[in-house]
């Protein structure tokens, strides 16, 4: 009887809702615990001097100024290499399926393989190819190029997904009005896909900032302020790793550095969201 089954279904729904709400609470709780723990242990050490001063006594005192500079260098070069390459690859994957099916399949398989490669393997590969093979040595450039290889599959995959969101009738409509492929891509495809591409970029930046194993053997762990991209430089995550594991009494400074890393991620994420929202509203209603 339908009348009888309604309350039963209702109560089943209630249980399901309660369960999923409970899971959400657990997720928020875990995030809160991690952030809280780091903030509680590290917050007292984070001030302007900490952010700008040189590293002293293996990190037990002083600050993380040179570390932040190295990290920015590594991240910037990594993105300058990976983003155009990833965007071009994603465009090829999303539009070339019919014209070059085998090349598309091969590219996709290679990216999947890259995505599932452990980062320590990237570190060894980067060391062999960039640091020694190409003679770049332990340098910011070696580290950045290794990281670029590592985030390429993540970024390409999300960019491709975003590019595929573009409805085929928009493409046909553009062609029917005599738009060239390049113009259509720039003015129709890219704007529609941009929020998704930015989301992928954030994911990639997060992955790059978090990376340790791939950098130790490529950009190294010198704590001096790098003078150029040929210099070795220690990234923030390598610094945290070193403080936490190799430096007795480095725990507080490790937590402080982790807090800075976390804040950076949150800030980048917020900036990207604001950009996307502002850009979307400009395109639609002024």
């Amino acid at each position: 009887m339908p009348e009888a089954s309604v309350p039963a279904a209702l109560s089943r729904d209630t249980v399901l809702h309660a369960l999923s709400a409970a899971c959400a609470v657990v997720v928020v709780g875990v995030v809160g615990a991690i952030v809280g723990e780091i903030a509680w242990r590290g917050a007292s050490s984070v001030d302007w001097a900490f952010l700008t001063a040189a590293v002293r006594d293996a990190g037990r005192s002083g600050g993380i100024g040179p570390i932040l500079v190295s990290t920015s260098w590594i991240l910037a070069i990594c993105l300058i290499v990976a983003v155009p390459l990833g965007l071009a690859t994603a465009t090829f994957l999303s539009e070339g399926e019919r014209t070059h099916p085998r090349l598309v399949a091969g590219t996709r398989r290679s990216l999947d393989l890259l995505a599932s490669t452990p980062s320590i393997v990237f570190g060894l590969f980067g060391n062999a190819l960039f640091a020694r093979g190409l003679g770049l040595g332990f340098s910011i450039l070696s580290g950045a190029l290794t990281l670029a290889c590592m985030i390429l599959p993540i970024f390409t995959h999300s960019a491709e997904t975003a590019l595929r969101q573009v409805p085929p009738e928009v493409r046909a409509g553009g062609a029917a009005l005599g738009l060239s492929d390049g113009r259509r891509w720039l003015h129709l495809t890219l704007p529609i896909a941009l929020p998704g591409i930015l989301a992928g970029l954030m994911l990639s930046i997060g992955r790059a900032l978090a990376e340790t194993a791939a950098l130790i053997f490529t950009s190294g762990y010198v704590v001096r302020l790098p003078q150029s991209w040929w210099d070795s430089g220690r990234s923030l995550s390598v610094h945290i790793y070193d403080l936490a594991l190799n430096v007795p009494g480095g725990q507080t400074r490790a937590a402080a550095s982790a807090l800075v890393l976390l804040s950076l991620l949150v800030a980048i994420h917020a900036a990207a969201q604001a950009l996307t929202r502002r850009w979307a509203s400009e395109r639609n209603d002024p």
Partner: peptide, 29 residues
């Protein structure tokens, strides 16, 4: 091709404006 397609316009069964402003829809082509 672009010049042919400008000379021979095509209207689709389902309206397909670009997802941008009305002005941009006309200015772009």
């Amino acid at each position: 091709l672009p010049s042919l397609r400008r000379r021979v316009g095509l209207i689709f069964q389902k309206p397909n404006p670009f997802p941008s402003s009305i002005r941009q829809n006309l200015h772009l082509p």
